[in-house]
Design a binder for these strands. Structure first.
Lengths: 162, 162
DNA sequence: AAAGATTGATATCTCAATCTTT
DNA sequence: AAAGATTGAGATATCAATCTTT
């Protein structure tokens, strides 16, 4: 596909952005994970699942849809839901419309957990990210992120060829 | 630490940036991982280790330094190095200066592997990220990333309290 | 005792079957 | 057969000991 010659390597500026991006991301991820584990006993994947469930008005989402939204494998969703179910954070329910399908729904305990985690989470995001930026900078940043995302989305299919 | 009242939730603009950031990151990560696995047989963690080794002029880094640079646990480095050693990508060496320490050094096969992976990797990064941005936008983006990073670095110690 | 590193047990993730319903 | 979901086996990550050197 690509020859080892004629590669357009990154310029100094580009490399600086790319490495900065990677580093910032690693830092934010690590800090947020640690903080949430300590304050609410939730891992990042736990939190992500709960966020996706509460984003739905019914508080329930199909396994495949969860997988698509989170860019996870279906089997990972299934395993993780099993573990979260064991802890009482979510529960499965039969799907009426499609006998093959399964709902994953958040429980009262799950809502309690995410409500406990949310304030600290938001405060950390605010402290680490938004306290550093003016409203104008937030808009500029958003513009750039979305510009890149429009390209990246096309190049990131979960299942590409088969 | 934080009461459940008086939380400054994210504004609509802020939420848009934050969610966009998370999503873009997930997409880029997934695409780059898949691409590198297919083209060079390396996982993202494999690649990250090799990059950190080649960044050193000697091609070798101490276990603890690797852990610090990558924000990994030392034990994770140790386990991962063991597996990479089994595949011939890196090797351990005794540290003269400090009898407790251990060098991790890249092997010829390791260099071959990263050189095989690099062109495709760079091309993907260019295609997904930099083809969407003008040089001015790259600079603006860098400025914003580094501005946030300066804050986030302070809040992301690997080992905070003990 | 503290620092550097490894080890083993457990938890989580990935990949390839498998099972059920459409 | 294809889609939705689960299962089990193997790979990887995390956490708490352990071991050696300073």
């Amino acid at each position: 596909m690509s020859t080892s010659t004629d590669v357009r390597w990154l310029t100094t500026d580009e490399q600086r952005l790319w490495r900065g991006w990677l580093k910032l991301n690693a830092q934010l991820t690590a800090t947020l994970a640690r903080e949430m584990q300590e304050e609410a006993g939730l891992s990042s994947p736990d939190f992500e699942v709960l966020v996706n469930l509460t984003d739905s008005p019914e508080g329930r989402v199909r396994v495949t849809d969860l997988a698509t939204q989170m860019l996870w494998e279906r089997s990972r969703v299934s395993h993780h839901v099993t573990r979260m179910e064991r802890r009482g954070l979510v529960q499965r329910a039969n799907c009426e419309e499609d006998g093959r399908g399964a709902w994953v729904e958040i429980t009262a305990a799950g809502r309690t957990a995410i409500e406990k985690a949310a304030p600290g989470h938001v405060e950390t995001v605010r402290r680490l990210v938004f306290d550093a930026l003016s409203p104008d900078e937030v808009r500029a940043f958003t513009h750039l992120v979305e510009k890149v995302q429009a390209r990246a989305a096309a190049g990131a299919p979960v299942a590409e060829m088969s």
